[in-house]
């Protein structure tokens, strides 16, 4: 996640760094206010401490402004990341079971691969995620967030890899004793390799 390899993971990574910086500043502010409570009162005069400053100002207004902006940005980003109709999109299916992944490809209906998902690089891919037994979760940290495989439901996740290469993937929902090794990999191909994969090569 800290080393994004696709647009979805990159925007979430930027969101993280932004939040980390902003929240570190907020944390520092709160700690400073806490520390200042210990400074000795000047000539016995009470320090300014009104409900207006502390509760309305710092307690209500200050967090509301930050939270509304963050919420708005989060929703906007979420809207961008959910799968939408796109003529360029490649559709694949991922079926999880204890403890393997079977991938199939809409463009080549007969073809299935075990524990390796092949995708074209630089193009959006919609992964339709299902399960044959318990709940699992499809997660390729460098490409996008995760989405669960739930019995009886099909969930669609949009992923995209910028460059050809191999990306590690793992199931991220506890599924029993084989959970540690419930991993897979995603291989992103350049246009020619992808074409030859579709034609049965590779």
């Amino acid at each position: 996640m800290l080393d994004p390899g696709g647009p979805a993971a990159r925007s979430i990574s930027m969101l993280w760094w932004g939040m980390l910086i902003a929240f570190t500043a907020i944390f520092a502010l709160v700690m400073a206010l806490l520390a200042l409570a210990w400074r000795p009162a000047r000539d016995g005069a009470a320090r300014s401490s009104s409900e207006r400053t502390w509760i309305i100002g710092l307690g209500l207004v200050f967090p509301s402004v930050i939270l509304i902006s963050l919420l708005a940005y989060g929703l906007w980003l979420g809207e961008r990341l959910i799968p939408r109709d796109d003529p360029d999109v490649t559709r694949v299916t991922a079926e999880a079971r204890r403890w393997s992944w079977t991938f199939s490809y809409d463009q080549n209906p007969g073809r299935t691969t075990l524990n390796v998902l092949h995708i074209p690089a630089g193009r959006p891919v919609d992964v339709a995620i299902t399960t044959a037994d318990v709940i699992h979760s499809f997660w390729v940290p460098r490409l996008a967030g995760k989405l669960d495989a739930i019995p009886g439901h099909v969930n669609v996740l949009r992923i995209e890899a910028d460059l050809p290469g191999t990306y590690a993937g793992q199931s991220a929902e506890f599924s029993g004793p084989g959970y540690d090794g419930h991993t897979f990999s995603v291989v992103a191909h350049g246009p020619e390799d992808w074409q030859s994969f579709l034609e049965g090569g590779l």
Partner: peptide
């Protein structure tokens, strides 16, 4: 207002 504003702003069934 705060928690239901998504009815106006987000994709309902996607």
């Amino acid at each position: 207002v705060w928690t239901l504003i998504p009815t106006l702003a987000t994709t309902p069934c996607g």
